[in-house]
């Protein structure tokens, strides 16, 4: 049976997809400094060690600051663009939207080096804010992709009905538009946060003296004795990502259901 073979293949493929994530907690709790089988025993030592590394803590704080700012700024920019694209017709719309979405298909290293060149030419010093500049650039297209479906599922006659019943454009935005696209906004915030928190290349080039979490991780990967701690940290990060994503997916679906639309599946 065709479907049967496909199903076996599908499950095998999922195993391939999840292989690294399944291994992560196994080694995080393994009582050995070498990351290899056979396993030596159970320990939570690597997790408790996480609490004793100040450099890690400042990297986490730095990354959180960058991720939150990036999520907020790119969502605001995303709302503007998605709303403009869904609601108004203007000459050159396709070209402008194409340019805004371009970072989605540009190799990240090119975004990183081109920004670096300009910042250095202008004599600006690198820091958290330069990483934010770069992250907003690559997160905005994702925000727009998510918010587009929210704004496009929004029946224009909803807003017209509100004007017709006496509300002004601003109060209509507050009472009708915002509540209906809110799930999309929340899911855009979460996605932006997740991407920024995980992004390495741009941060690697644009971060100053204060590394972000991925840049810190990168520096640790060179030292074999630090690997178990990285595994413990990775386990926590994966768990966090899954929670955030499940939340984002929940809000995305609720948004589609609210606006009375049909689920087309997926974030991308």
């Amino acid at each position: 049976m065709k479907g049967g073979w496909l199903k076996i293949y599908a499950i095998g493929y999922l195993l391939f997809l999840y292989a690294p994530i399944i291994l992560l907690p196994i080694f995080a709790f393994n009582d050995a400094t070498i990351i290899a089988f056979p396993l030596k025993g159970f320990t939570t030592q690597w997790f408790s060690e996480l609490a004793t590394i100040p450099a890690l803590h400042s990297a986490v704080l730095n990354s959180l600051l960058i991720a939150v700012t990036t999520a907020v700024v790119s969502t605001v920019l995303g709302v503007c663009a998605a709303r403009a694209a869904a609601r108004y017709q203007f000459p050159g719309k396709k070209g402008i939207m194409g340019a805004i979405m371009l970072p989605l298909v540009l190799p990240e290293i090119i975004v990183a080096v081109s920004l670096l060149v300009v910042l250095l030419q202008l004599g600006l010093s690198l820091g958290a804010w330069t990483v934010i500049l770069g992250h907003v650039l690559i997160c905005t297209p994702f925000s727009i992709a998510i918010l587009n479906s929210a704004f496009q599922n929004l029946d224009m006659s909803m807003e017209e009905a509100s004007y017709d019943l006496g509300e002004t454009p601003w109060s209509t935005f507050r009472l009708i538009t915002l509540p209906l696209v809110m799930p999309g906004i929340i899911s855009s915030l979460l996605i932006g946060f997740t991407i920024s928190l995980d992004e390495f290349i741009i941060a690697f080039f644009l971060t100053g003296a204060e590394p972000t979490l991925p840049v810190y991780l990168w520096s640790q990967l060179r030292f074999p004795q630090k690997i178990p701690v990285v595994m413990a940290l990775g386990t926590i990060l994966v768990l966090l990502s899954i929670i955030l994503l499940t939340m984002a997916e929940y809000f995305r679906r609720r948004g589609i259901a609210r606006a009375g639309g049909k689920d087309t599946g997926g974030f991308l």
Binding site: D155, A161, D164, L180, A259
Partner: peptide, 13 residues
């Protein structure tokens, strides 16, 4: 004036 829309535009939330 008030309007009844073709899609009814009932606020779903």
């Amino acid at each position: 004036t008030n309007m009844v829309f073709q899609s009814y535009a009932i606020f779903p939330h």
